[in-house]
C-alpha cells in the first residue's frame, strides 16, 4: 500500500515544483526605479508619473501612443504603447505600464491610469464664488 502514497507524493512534489517554477517565471513585479527597468530588460509593471512637459504623441494611423514617464528619482523613460490613448490619461496622477525596456524605449502592452479620487482630498476651495 505504501507505493501508492509514494507515487501520490511524487506527483504532488512534481506538480508543486512546476507550479512554483512557472509562478516565478511568469511573475511580473512592480518596479518603481526606472534605472533598473532600463538596465535589466525584464517584463515588469513600471509605475511612475507622466512627464507633462514632454506631452505625448498620438499616432492613430499606426495605433501608437508615445509619452514619457518619470520615477521618484527623476529618471525619465520613453514609453511606446501599441494602442490608443487610455481614458483619463491627462488627469492621471500615476501611470502603470506593463512591458519591457528594449531598443531605447519601454515597449508597453498595457497602460493603466490611476486617477485622483474625484471627491476626496483633491479639491480646493473655490474662493471667488
Amino acid at each position: 500500500m505504501k507505493t501508492r502514497y509514494y507515487i501520490g507524493g511524487v506527483i504532488i512534489v512534481v506538480f508543486l515544483g512546476i507550479l512554483f517554477y512557472n509562478f516565478t517565471k511568469t511573475n511580473i513585479e512592480y518596479e518603481y526605479d526606472f534605472q533598473k527597468v532600463m538596465t535589466n530588460g525584464k517584463v515588469c509593471k513600471a509605475s511612475g508619473v507622466w512627464v507633462k512637459e514632454k506631452s505625448f504623441i498620438e499616432d492613430v494611423q499606426n495605433r501608437k501612443f508615445i509619452f514619457y514617464i518619470r520615477d521618484a528619482n527623476k529618471n525619465e523613460m520613453k514609453v511606446v504603447y501599441h494602442g490608443i490613448k487610455p481614458n483619463n490619461f491627462e488627469i492621471a496622477t500615476n501611470v502603470v505600464v506593463t512591458g519591457k525596456y528594449e531598443n531605447g524605449y519601454f515597449n508597453a502592452t498595457d497602460v493603466l491610469t490611476k486617477c485622483p479620487s474625484k471627491y476626496e482630498g483633491q479639491t480646493t476651495q473655490k474662493t471667488d464664488s
Binding site: N22, F23, N27, I28, E29, V43, K45
Partner: peptide
C-alpha cells in the same frame, strides 16, 4: 483551484502573474 488561487492572490504579495501562467498550468 490551487493554480488559480495562487495567481489570483499574487497581487496581495505585490506581484502579478501573466496570463500565460494560468494557461500553461
Amino acid at each position: 483551484a490551487l493554480v488559480t488561487f495562487l495567481g489570483t492572490s499574487a497581487p496581495i504579495l505585490g506581484k502579478s502573474v501573466q496570463i500565460e501562467f494560468y494557461n500553461q498550468m
